[in-house]
Amino acid sequence: MIGPNAVLQLVAVLERHEGPERAAGLLADAGLKGLPDGEHMIPEGDAARLHRRLRAEFPARAPDLAREAGFATGDYILAHRIPRMAQAVLKLLPAPLAARALSKAIARHAWTFAGSGTVRAVDPWTFEIDHNPLVRGEHGPAPLCHWHAAVFERLYARLVHPGVRCVETRCGAQPGSHTCRFEVVRWRRAD
């Protein structure tokens, strides 16, 4: 099982960019009969099929669409899942301490976004997901987990330091790997 935002936020992004009919078609192509209610966990296979269909249908745009959905998922988590007091405390802490606390919380609640995958906080700035269900069985030369990277990035940028970016440096879909590795790094926009 996985959290419903893996589907809900992606469908909302698709509706905005492609229209409701195209989003509904992609949902149907992925074998989903409708949207989850948002109150309960959903089978991870449903989310995986939708993300796979996104990558197949929009290969060039899928990374940006998945990222937008990941940011929206992070916003949902901030609005509904992390208590305001905890957010305020994290924002007051120095970045290294806030990152340590946030990484522990993410690892504790990983089942909501990683399903049957195994999440490990390597250090306060690095995560790994072994056997990530959103890319399980897929193969490709480049990282595919733009949704996960965006969720991590949004949480860290809002709670730890605004100048961070999360980069997937290795993907379970790449040859010789079954682990997705995400690194939160300081980032400066080139203006």
Rank of each mutant, 00 (worst) to 15 (best):
P143D: 07
V89N: 04
Q9W: 00
R120P: 00
E21T: 10
G31W: 04
R81E: 15
T73I: 00
R170C: 08
G163D: 15
R53M: 12
D46T: 01
G74C: 02
P20K: 14
T126L: 07
G45S: 11
G3M: 03
D29K: 14
H148T: 13
C171L: 06
R84W: 09
R52Y: 06
G19H: 08
V135C: 12
D46I: 01
G25C: 08
L93H: 06
Q9K: 15
I42Q: 03
G25R: 14
A95Y: 11
R22P: 00
T112V: 14
L97H: 05
R16W: 02
R136K: 14
M1K: 12
K91F: 06
A48M: 01
Y76W: 15
L10F: 09
G74L: 02
R165N: 02
G172N: 06
K91A: 13
L159W: 10
P175V: 01
A30K: 04
A142P: 00
H139D: 06
G117Q: 08
P20D: 10
I77C: 03
R52C: 03
A48Q: 06
D130Q: 13
L90W: 03
G3S: 05
L27N: 07
G70Y: 05
R16L: 13
V119S: 06
V122N: 05
V160H: 11
R188F: 07
L92R: 15
A30L: 07
S177C: 05
I106L: 14
S103A: 15
C145I: 01
T179I: 12
L50I: 10
R165E: 12
F58G: 00
D29P: 00
A79P: 00
P4S: 15
H131P: 00
L35Y: 07
A110M: 07
G74M: 03
K104H: 13
H80W: 08
R165C: 06
R188D: 09
I42M: 04
Q87M: 12
P133Q: 09
D130W: 01
K33D: 15
D130I: 00
A60T: 11
L78D: 02
P94V: 10
L102R: 07
A6F: 04
F71I: 11
H80Y: 13
P96W: 10
G140I: 04
N5V: 05
Y76F: 15
I2V: 13
P20T: 13
R52G: 12
A98V: 12
L90G: 11
Q174C: 12
S116H: 14
F127Y: 12
G31I: 04
L93W: 02
M41W: 06
L78S: 04
T118E: 14
G70Q: 01
H146K: 05
R108N: 13
P59F: 11
I129T: 06
A79K: 08
